[in-house]
Nucleic acid binder design. Structure first.
Lengths: 203, 203, 203, 203
DNA sequence: GGATAACCGAGACGGTACGTCCGGTCTTTGG
DNA sequence: CCAAAGACCGGACGTACCGTCTCGGTTATCC
């Protein structure tokens, strides 16, 4: 891990860049959130701290980039499965699996935790990071609305808040595993309400 | 016979105890989570750091006690309002209001954040702290089941995970305010499913 | 060591007194000067800290009493051996042996060290403690003067400063052992000068 | 070829280094040994505590460097004055004056005191620090032996132990001032014995 | 013989200092 | 010009003692 890299002059060194993300990845896997400090990442990556700060203004930014690198590796789009129920369940369960199987869950927990201490991090999380994650869900809901599975005036934002809120809650209390059909039943209940256009419909 | 208990040694000074919680309260209100360090709390309370550590093994423990002090001051039980819909909405909206109006919201965000960095804190949060908060909801659900508003085999734990997950999500993304009937509609959707005994019923 | 003692009314409890000195003795023997804190002594003696401070205003005072207790146990007067040379050598070597064989050496090193940080301790060391130790030497010098072994105008204070200075130096640099006749030769040199009434005579 | 040594990274800041020693110097002069804490030195020097610990592993190390800085400023070598008597008196009196006039005396007292609580400090004091101080005396004794003022087999180590022991004793009991020819007479007595080759001769 | 006063163990308290870790910034060296 | 390395300040961490204080309780002594 600490193979001797050296400066390559006045352009960004991609090896260094990857080494830093790898170091963060390993630390996250080995010691969890508490083990990831800019200091420790720099040490393990064999990089100087200013190098980290040049590219990522904060630990959160580093973690976000790490998370997204993992995501593109592990999380595919959800194809048309014929029903919103199947697609949403596939989406949520896929996210849960991704959080469980890779350090991404750790990274995500860390990002949320950091955002509670730092307003800028919170805004970046809410306004840039989360919308990217909801894009996949939006595609599914578009298809559902086209199929008539949910009412035209359904409160889609609320529906997603509930689904992601539930997921966050399980992630943050480390209870991602106890899943005996809970996701299926939750999605069914929400879709039923969204279809009726009554209770989950916008005002 | 008389009480033969003989406490020995000096006993905890309640003024100091209160001064420390007050100091934490103020720091939380003024500077948010990042402003609360054991050092700063001790300084403002005019207490020694060892005094803090004598009573609270960690910052999390201090924040939890602060949170519960605020809660007993601000949050009453939910009386029988005639329907589970009304009672659950009152509960959730009460919690949201409590989080918005007092530093308790800050405290709670901090507790969740700390738990992501510290396994012991997470266990204490999940296994001791949260169940206390869910007790009020349990009473409401008991009444609802007695009224026949939800099926006998409804998955009450899932229902609460969804309600609290939604609340956490809004709290942690600092979006507790944009509430135009969302809570009412969510509760209605969940209760509809729980009554049918179908989708939100246990397996 | 922590046999349960209790108050014996409004007079000093000699058992407690002894237990405290014993505890200090043991700590000194086990961990040296650094291991002797009022806290640790109280803990090991099973006594309260205020009890220590009631009788000894400082750690130095406690160490001095400990030292003198040891001294009366281990260090006898020097009888008339016929010559000042023999008697002074017996005195100095006795002191060195006492310092080496018991925790008294540790105690004495501690007393000297404490006095460098605390003016009151220094005064008490210099004006009360040391004169007591020089009393034995004074008796020897009186006899020597009566025998005519040292000139009437010899600078006795200087002679003792040299002898004790040499001893302190060896004690404080932990070189009390490497003694191959050094004390004998030093005493002989000083007595020769003191007899001549020339170089070691007062002004 | 050019010097191919390439140190990388920022280098030690000499201003900071001096500021720390100055701060220690002032604290020593103002409050004595007890006033010198790493904390206080860092505070006054406007330096971070880790900076102190980076360069000096302990307070003793800092004090030693301070002492030696003062010494090179204040204490010159002893030139050939024609007789060992004059040279040794000049040496000892110079050291006493140095201890009296500058905070160096305080520093030296502190170093000795620290060494009583810390074995490593004691070894460093005895095996590195003191020999440096005795080097000047060794030069004088070499000259004296060349002149025939002291016997070839004289126990030079003992002679120095006595001279320095006497000096320490006076320093540590804060009696450096009462000097009415005492040093002269002591040196004379020791040189007389060392010349005779009898009493102060080696075994 | 009852009050009282000094003692006792225990331990909480406000403080100070310890030695370490980390967050960000600045400076030096070299590609 | 910019990357790498690392020194720097500042500050929080959790711990050990300091010396003082306040307890509940005991017992010898004095009124």
């Amino acid at each position: 891990m600490t193979d001797r890299r050296t400066s390559i002059g006045n352009s960004r060194n991609p090896e260094t860049h990857a080494a830093i993300l790898d170091a963060a990845h390993e630390l996250l896997a080995e010691h969890g959130y508490a083990g990831v400090s800019m200091e420790a990442v720099a040490r393990r990556a064999g990089a100087g701290k200013p190098t980290l700060y040049r590219w990522w203004p904060s630990k959160t930014a580093l973690l976000i980039e790490l998370y997204e690198r993992e995501k593109t590796r592990a999380l595919a789009e959800i194809p048309d499965l014929g029903s919103a129920q199947k697609e949403l369940v596939a989406l949520i369960k896929g996210v849960h699996r991704f959080w469980r199987k890779t350090p991404a869950g750790q990274a995500f927990r860390s990002i949320i935790a950091e955002a509670q201490a730092d307003d800028a991090a919170l805004r970046s999380l809410r306004d840039e990071f989360l919308p990217r994650g909801r894009a996949t869900a939006t595609v599914i809901l578009d298809r559902a609305q086209a199929r008539g599975e949910i009412a035209p005036d359904a409160d889609r934002e609320l529906l997603l808040d509930v689904l992601f809120g539930f997921s966050w809650y399980r992630l943050l209390t480390h209870r991602l595993r106890d899943d005996t059909g809970a996701v299926e039943r939750l999605v069914a209940a929400l879709l039923a309400a969204a279809k009726a256009g009554g209770s989950l419909a916008g005002d």
